[in-house]
């Protein structure tokens, strides 16, 4: 009896020590990790427990993510198309009527050695006429003409580094000075216009991306703020029993993360559906034009970036809202 009294006496004295939670680094890390996975799961359940309002929020988020993403994809596709045109910027030299085929050939060979010229191709009046004849609608017009009205043409492909206005213009002026050359035409102006439009579109897309990203942050932030207001009492009690701000904030951060992640995934689904819908009509269009225009989607890497960005923005919105509102919720 005396022995057991003694034993209990020591236990009594060591009590405060026994009251401390596990404090080795590994057990604390494990507790932290356990809490994260627990909270991550609980916050998903909480989202599902209010399906209608969660769905509304997620829908708003997915639209806000879809819009800039779609614009970015559109711009990328246009840039891609004009990029193909870049490879083949051409100058057309319309020769004087009296220049013979052999002289035209020789001139083409001569021009090929000029600086800034990638290649040249001499198209004789006869060849030009033939190619016109194969074109739909031109057949009869060509046949009705008494003689071939077409001049010989040297098609000059410019090398790519020459694509600034000045250098291309210099080349055109040099060509037009040749006595055999009647008219020198260069199709640079339309390309520059398209480029300006692409530049504008890219800026617009960047601006819209920024604005709607802020929108995502604000929408998530507001949703989280409402959630914090609803759980006010719980937060205060949790703080009273010794919860850190980080502990209290955690479920809200996960909630924001899920909102952003799910919103981005739905945006990705919407974009994929839109791509399929457009591909069908675009196929018909490219068949009409006889050229292969293919729509580029987001690709794996960009899809991943989109989803991660959505999650990050959601987290950021939740962080802004919770760090502000949870700090203010002190036990009173």
């Amino acid at each position: 009896m005396a022995k057991s009294n003694q034993k209990n006496g020591t236990r009594t004295r060591s009590r405060p020590g026994a009251s401390s939670p596990p404090n080795t680094l590994s057990s604390r890390l494990r507790a932290w990790r356990d809490n994260h996975s627990l909270v991550a799961g609980q916050s998903i359940q909480r989202l599902l427990s209010t399906p209608l309002s969660s769905a509304m929020t997620i829908l708003v988020l997915s639209i806000a993510i879809t819009l800039p993403a779609a614009l970015n994809i559109a711009i990328t596709n246009i840039a891609e198309l004009t990029g193909q045109a870049n490879d083949s910027v051409q100058m057309s030299l319309y020769l004087q009527k009296q220049v013979s085929d052999s002289k035209g050939q020789a001139l083409a060979t001569d021009i090929r050695s000029w600086e800034g010229v990638a290649s040249t191709d001499y198209i004789s009046p006869a060849t030009a006429r033939k190619s016109f004849e194969t074109m739909a609608g031109f057949e009869e017009i060509i046949a009705s003409l008494p003689e071939n009205p077409l001049p010989g043409v040297i098609s000059v492909t410019l090398s790519e580094h020459l694509l600034t206005t000045n250098s291309a213009e210099e080349l055109r002026e040099r060509a037009v000075k040749l006595e055999q050359v009647d008219i020198a035409k260069i199709d640079l102006a339309w390309l520059q216009k398209v480029r300006a439009i692409v530049d504008f579109g890219e800026q617009l897309a960047a601006g819209l991306t920024l604005l709607l990203s802020i929108g995502v942050v604000l929408v998530v932030g507001n949703t989280i703020k409402l959630s914090i207001d609803n759980r006010r009492e719980e937060i205060i009690v949790t703080k009273l029993v010794g919860a850190t701000n980080a502990f209290v904030r955690r479920p809200f951060l996960y909630m924001g993360l899920w909102f952003g992640l799910i919103g981005a995934i739905i945006a990705l689904v919407l974009l994929t559906l839109a791509k399929f819908a457009l591909t069908n009509s675009l196929d018909a269009l490219s068949e009409l034009y006889g050229s292969a225009i293919s729509l580029k989607g987001l690709g794996l890497l960009n899809s991943l970036t989109l989803v991660l960005s959505g999650a990050m923005l959601g987290w950021l919105g939740a962080w802004l809202a919770s760090s502000q509102h949870i700090r203010a919720l002190e036990p009173r």
């Binding site: 939670p21 596990p22 057990s27 604390r28 494990r30 507790a31 932290w32 356990d34 809490n35 009690v237 949790t238 029993v241 010794g242 919860a243 502990f247």
Partner: peptide, 11 residues
Amino acid sequence: ALPLIVAGFHP
């Protein structure tokens, strides 16, 4: 259980 969860006790 709340104070224990907050303090990171093992389940």
